[in-house]
Design a protein around this nucleic acid. Sequence first.
RNA 1: CGAGGUGUAGCGCAGUUUGGUAGCGCGUUUGGUUCGGGACCAAAAGGUCGCAGGUUCAAAUCCUGUCACCUCGACCA
Length: 481
Amino acid sequence: MAKEEKKQGFVEHITPRDVDFSQWYTDVIKMTELCDYSPVRGCMVMRPYGYAIWERIQAELDQRFKATGHENVAMPMLIPESLLLKEAEHVEGFAPEVAWVTHGGTEELTERLAVRPTSETIFCTMYSKWVQTWRDLPMKYNQWCSVMRWEKSTRPFLRTSEFWWQEGHTIHATAEEAQEETLTMLEVYREVAENVLALPVICGRKSDKEKFAGARATYSIEAMMQDGKALQAGTSHNFGTNFAEAYDIQFQSKEGKLEYVHETSWGVSTRLIGAIIMTHGDERGLRLPPTIAPIQAVILPIAAHKPGVLEACEKLNEELKAAGLRVKLDDRDTVSAGFKFNDWELKGVPVRVEVGPRDLENGVVTIFRRDLCEKVTLPLEGLADAIKELLADIHKNLFEQAKAFRDNRTQTVSNMEELGEVVQTGFAKAMWCGSRECEDTIKEKFNATSRNMPFDQTPIGETCVCCGKKAEKLIYFAKAY
RNA sequence: CGAGGUGUAGCGCAGUUUGGUAGCGCGUUUGGUUCGGGACCAAAAGGUCGCAGGUUCAAAUCCUGUCACCUCGACCA
């Protein structure tokens, strides 16, 4: 008891998820040193460990963007007010959350400059200069940058005033091509979410109420967090000729006619890190999917002062690195082994390799896998391959756990009573008449919004869950971040 | 923007009700003993109490104002 009390003094505890999920999230964020609060309202600082995760995500996405024919560019962060105002719906959507630059040094500017909340307007402006003929199309550009939205309330990774993301912007000669691009990129997001981040997602189209300001159609991938709330993890928009008309992006077609381009945009952000935390995290902290874990395996010398232990660890470190694994040898002699166990479990390192005198005598190591918190003994011989297999299995297990959780908390509903019940803890799958009024009613009654209309539209009923009229679409409702 | 909360050492907090010139834990530094699940002992360094006014012989404490951050809502990736 006395010992327990004493522990409380220096051990920081994570609030259990079922006590206060929100507090659990905040605790994990702080203790893992992914990011820190900054002196600027609503803006976070990404610390090395958090940024390393982002770099891994960037690398995975970027190679897929390149593979699908996109090129990276860099646009200015400031947008003249007049440019922003050209597309009415877009302005209306973003105006409340734009930060403005009004002075250059001590001089007041003749025209205010918006700190970009997103870059459609600047891309459009440039595209209108760059496109002349059908031969110039398509143009498929992407940029990695940060954007700023003056959010009313912020949370690290999930919603910050400034956030890091990529925004792809493409223009095409035909509506068909633009639609294909929109769906191709949504599929890239799905594939990365599931195969890289181990996040099961629902792909579908947003309702008009929920779509992007200025888009003809918005598609999203939606993930479920451990509190049953939905997180929009990525979006892909088809603008049709909407922006092209506002920004005058025209080209001469093969037939010699002037036509407007068809445009898309798509983005994912550092919010994905929030999704990883809230999908996979547990009472001990993070559980990182192996593909994006900055450290895939940590080597821990046990009784490091005993002869041969440290040397064996160093040798193993080199071997595993040479095999292409991201490994770290934790040879700190300032903290105990027990401290290190907890430290790396908190940080979500998928695999821990314990190397102690007893292991070495037997030519084995003790392996701890973070996803199951289980220890197994493996031979030193051929360890690199064994770890690779283990990492693949950890990914699979994380994904399946998350999927089982989501599926358990997803239910079909046929009336408002059921819907109200289900959205308290998860996703409600329902038929919907397509009217804005019904979405508003559901929002007002249950604080739930439509997430998306999945591509698989196999009907589960004939009438709208809300008004009882003829249903048009199958759609998910949930409380959302 | 509404409701609540918090600003005191690097971090977490006590002290504020009842004014008397700042304390605890962790961490840090040094030395020693430990080392297979968050080690122990000893010594040491470290604070104009968010900021600005006011009241008072005296303010972390009372009053006024102000700024920032957090949480929960409403709106958004």
